[in-house]
């Protein structure tokens, strides 16, 4: 796959962040950007004819293992961010009865 195409995924996420009016949609847009970044990394590491990075006798050329290792970290970080964002989202809904940014920003704190 072409890196340019995966960069479009990032741009789609940015577009979504700048237009979506709902907290949950915003959370998903952040995960979309993150998936775009992960795909971008893996795209750059990958090339035609590279084997998976496991050393054995019949392997002559491997793909770069570093981006793969970095992306495991990014995925874990992403899952942590998503979990935290969603639980706060639920709590915000309990407080304000809405998950629309405009409404929760308008409503004053009840307590």
């Amino acid at each position: 796959m072409n890196p340019v195409l995966t960069f479009i995924v990032v741009l789609i996420g940015l577009y979504g962040l700048a237009t979506s009016k709902n907290i949950i949609k915003s959370v998903f847009c952040v995960t979309i950007i993150e998936s775009g970044v992960i795909l971008l990394f893996l795209n750059f590491a990958n090339y035609e004819g590279g084997a998976i990075p496991i050393v054995s006798e019949d392997v002559a050329a491997i793909v770069d293992p570093l981006p793969h290792a970095l992306m495991i970290t990014t995925i874990v970080i992403g899952s942590a961010v998503t979990a935290l964002a969603l639980i706060i989202c639920i709590k915000v809904f309990h407080h304000y009865g809405s998950t629309e940014w405009a409404q929760i920003l308008r409503r004053e704190d009840v307590k």
Binding site: L17, I23, S26, V27, V30, V81, L84, A85, I88, C89, K91, V92, H95, Y96, I104, L105, D109, V110, K111
Partner: peptide, 15 residues
Amino acid sequence: KKTGSSLRAAIYYLL
């Protein structure tokens, strides 16, 4: 503090 306004600020900050 888990009040509405602080959670609202927290998610804004996080995202």
